[in-house]
Design a protein around this nucleic acid. Sequence first.
DNA 1: AGCACGCCGACT
DNA 2: GTCGGCGTGCTC
Length: 653
Amino acid sequence: MIVHVALPIPVTKAFSYFAPDEWGPCIRKYSRVAVPFHNKTLTGFVAGFEEGTGPGLKEIIEVLDPFPLLTAPLEDLVEWASRYYVAPPGVVLKCALPLTLHIERYLCVRANARSLGSLDSMPLRKALKAAGKIALLHHLREGSATLFDTLTGADFLPADTIGGDGAGGEKTLYAGEISGRLERYLQLIAAHLEKGNNVMMLLPDYFSAGAYFYRALSAAFRDRVFWYGSSIPLKKRMEAYFRARQDHGCLILGNKSAVFLPVNRLSCIVVERDEEDEYRNEEGFRFNPPAVAIQRAGIERTGLFIGSASPSIESYHRAREKGFIFIDSKWPVDRHFDEHIHEVIAKSYGALLEELVATANKALERGESVAVFTPRKDYGSFIQCAECKKPFLCPRCEGALNYQKETGRLTCNNCAGDFTFKEQCSYCGGNIIRFGQIGAEYIEEHLKGALPQYPVVRFSGDAGKKRAKPPLPSGKQPYVLIGTQPLSKLYDVHVHTLVLFGWEDMRRMAGYRSDEKMFHVLINLLDALTPREVFFFMDSRKKVDPSSLFDMEAFYRDELNKRKTADFPPFTRAFLVEVVKKTKEAGLPVVKKIKDALAQQGLFDHITGPLVQRKKAYRWKMILKGNDEILYQTLLEIYDMPGVRIEVDPPNI
DNA sequence: AGCACGCCGACT
DNA sequence: GTCGGCGTGCTC
């Protein structure tokens, strides 16, 4: 027989192989198979099969999963995701059926017929050899033998026998503060677990918000909470896998690939902070787990509960359009933040820093702690010689450089270049260096110098991913905490005064979503740190009125109106097409090919982005907008062109 | 994605 | 005269 195999490589077509006819019963849709490719072995997924022999086809080496691993609704979900995210099925399946999961290693045979007594409790691998693959499979199908896993001891159910009751469920969007969210999650999850159902919950990260929720949920549902994710050891992950698949009354937590887990008796999916960019899967298959979860809840007809202090525009829009129960706790209004907003406007960083010291000092003297948010984590960028005014540019690509004082490195945003910083201008030799943009490191240094009697702590999540908490002083001693966006996840940290420094710069950092991002950052900082007073420190030339962000209802309404008028998501889909080539000559034909392919479909007008040129690696960015039905075939064609990357729903354009 | 093949610069 | 850079193309 001929088997079509979807391989986990960025090529849209499937590859065909030959398999002996007697393997027929083992070959199921999306079974993992080992196949020769180039001169090595690759694991792919069965996409289809047919009778016959093809000339020159190589032979499949082995069928790794003789039983289906995906439930029918999950197959639909994978196919939806493959199309929606313009990714080959093999690439999606690699994420849904990780090759590191050696399920068979944890499976043993349970003999239900006396004649098979010799196989009882035998590891699956051994039993396959002892009884023969085809014979054992026959027993498994007849029920004279079953499988169980050694981690939970429960029966290993074939994927096509597991699933929810499809009873449907409420879809809820809850906009509320952390304590309200946690309370609702606890109630909701308890109700589902009591019925013997399983609940899946997505969290935006593992170490920060994830750890906070894991603690709270584990305390409430002892021994019933399991993490599934790449951050935990394989054996624990496997246990979560088997619990999800065959146990009941379990809460399965995860943040990315967990959305594709087969879950028996799944009755509700919970998504915390759906708007977080951290949900974006970076490696290989780029997808947004909350979006997939929403689709899954629809396909499997489970309940869906999205909770956030500031839901994404997409969720808000969807909730309104698709008849979600929408609960707005109106918490920013209840807390009367608008009575405690202070604007501090100045023409230079020097003046703002002086004001910052005074503001912090006032709070500290009263015994109150201060948090300073800034959008940049480094020491500074837009580096310039004070004498000759020449900027420090990346020697490789002439892009703008960022200076990290801690490591003494200059890094380039464009080409990811990394250089040693010298406090000397390469043109005139001057050694007075200015920074056009300052970040958390700079502010930390300045405050440490100006407020030596108080602890000043800097926290930017990526400094050490495993460190979920900043090293704050214990006891009642007031402190200053400086950081970037990870500050908004410190649900255990509370300050009296929140200062947003250089906050208005976020407006230029995220394209059409910049206002939304500012909104999310502000709202989540208020939610986590519960400040009593909020200061907006802004450059007088770039000041942004923050008051509109406190009226959430008005914010969503206005933002959606703007998006509708400008024809942006969620009203139109957006695709970012990037062409990266070493030389300009190599890139231009590809760009032309893309333009031609679009023009043929009458889609030329969808190119809205300018062509951006870089020195070392040449890079072209095109933003395509439109209905994916019209674009899809063209996008597939573009996908297979060398040096092209497509990103669906790009968050930063 | 990998990996092989192929064409231009600094070396014993 | 070769070694090795990466740029291009192919993989059932």
